[in-house]
Design a protein around this nucleic acid. Structure first.
Lengths: 142, 142
DNA sequence: ATCTTTGCAAACTTTTTGCACCAAT
DNA sequence: ATTGGTGCAAAAAGTTTGCAAAGAT
């Protein structure tokens, strides 16, 4: 299923001088349809549903390529693999280190910190690149 | 050189029922003397300066052991290896994704965020476990 | 026709583990 | 004496790369 969202990304990719290959199409389709962020493995599995011949290495190369174009981002949620998602899907991740549960939080929660780091340290944070690790309500109670 | 800081940690380790082995002594000595956080490789190198026979796997097992006791923490600074440091060495890390420079910032900078996540989400953050990634003053200017 | 992208297999980096031996208490 | 720690070698987990063949424009 090629969504409007995905086809807009095809255009963006071409506008930036990239070639639109089946692998790239498939990765964009999967990421556009995803309701959660996906690890490289999950991404590969879903890409395989429609296009079984695409190689794991190609998926890795594709997400690097799409990241360079600013279309895709990845986030490190903890010790395991990174997760990938479209760059317009903006929110923070609160990852529970005990149960692994992930709660999403709006970007606004970091606005003050963002300003403060900028003012005090000249540092432009890219907060989406890492999850905020801690303990969720249930696990900090226990 | 066994510092006061290190020998206090020997005591803590024993008080918790751990065995004080040469490997553990060496790791505590190195971490107590370090002025920066160390990757497992760097830690191993420095451990080898005094005790060349200690195995890489032992260093890994030792930091896990010391983390379980709350004596050591590790932080993920970016894509590379984790860095280890004593748990009493509290500050955040602002890591520049362009030049790799690390700026340390006081824990107070996250106080508001900490409270907000607690109040709004019941989430107890453990902010030291991940660096704050972004661009330093120099690199965001460029 | 050209230049990029892909598949494959292999390397790489960081960390973990099974097992037999050794050491701290 | 007993329990737990260590060295070793090998595997695991996640990701990257060199190369020759195939594909997009």
């Amino acid at each position: 299923v090629v969504t409007t969202r995905a086809s807009a990304l095809y255009d963006e990719l071409r506008a930036r001088g990239g070639k639109l290959t089946p692998a790239r199409r498939a990765v964009l389709d999967v990421l556009s349809a995803a309701t959660t962020h996906l690890t490289a493995d999950q991404l590969l599995d879903r890409v395989h549903d429609a296009t079984p011949d695409i190689h794991r290495a190609t998926v890795y190369r594709t997400v690097v390529f799409l990241s360079d174009l600013g279309i895709v981002e990845h986030t490190h949620l903890g010790h395991g693999p990174a997760v990938y998602h479209l760059a317009d899907d903006l929110h923070h991740h609160l990852v529970c280190e005990v149960c692994g549960d992930i709660v999403e939080a709006p970007v606004a929660i970091l606005r003050n910190l963002d300003r403060r780091l900028k003012d005090d340290y000249g540092f432009e944070m890219r907060p989406l690149h890492f999850a905020i690790v801690g303990r969720c309500r249930r696990c900090s109670a226990g």
